[in-house]
Amino acid sequence: MKEPKREAGLGKTALVIASAGTLLAAYIIIGIFAARWLQRLIGGSEIWVAVGAISGMALGIINVALLIKKFLGEQNG
Rank of each mutant, 00 (worst) to 15 (best):
I47W: 09
G77F: 08
A50R: 06
S55W: 02
G60K: 01
E74W: 07
L66V: 12
T22N: 12
G60Q: 02
G9Y: 05
A18K: 09
K69I: 12
V51L: 12
A35E: 01
Q39P: 02
I62S: 10
L41R: 10
W48P: 00
T13M: 10
I61E: 02
W37R: 08
A50E: 06
G44W: 04
A53S: 07
S19H: 07
G60I: 02
A58W: 03
R36G: 07
E46A: 14
Q75D: 11
I42D: 05
K69W: 12
G56T: 01
K5S: 08
P4Y: 05
E46N: 08
E7M: 09
A35I: 02
W48S: 04
A20F: 03
K5G: 06
K69D: 13
G56P: 01
K5H: 07
L72D: 13
I32D: 00
M57H: 02
G21A: 09
F33N: 11
A8M: 13
Q39N: 12
S19V: 10
G11N: 07
W37A: 14
V51M: 05
G43R: 05
R40L: 08
L24N: 00
L15H: 06
A65Q: 08
E46V: 09
M57D: 01
L59G: 00
E3F: 12
K69M: 14
P4N: 10
G44H: 04
V49A: 11
M57G: 11
I17Q: 03
L59K: 02
G56D: 00
A25Y: 06
I29Y: 14
G77D: 09
E46D: 14
K69Y: 12
I62A: 15
A35T: 02
G21P: 02
I54V: 15
I30P: 00
K70W: 15
W48G: 02
E46G: 11
G31E: 00
R40G: 11
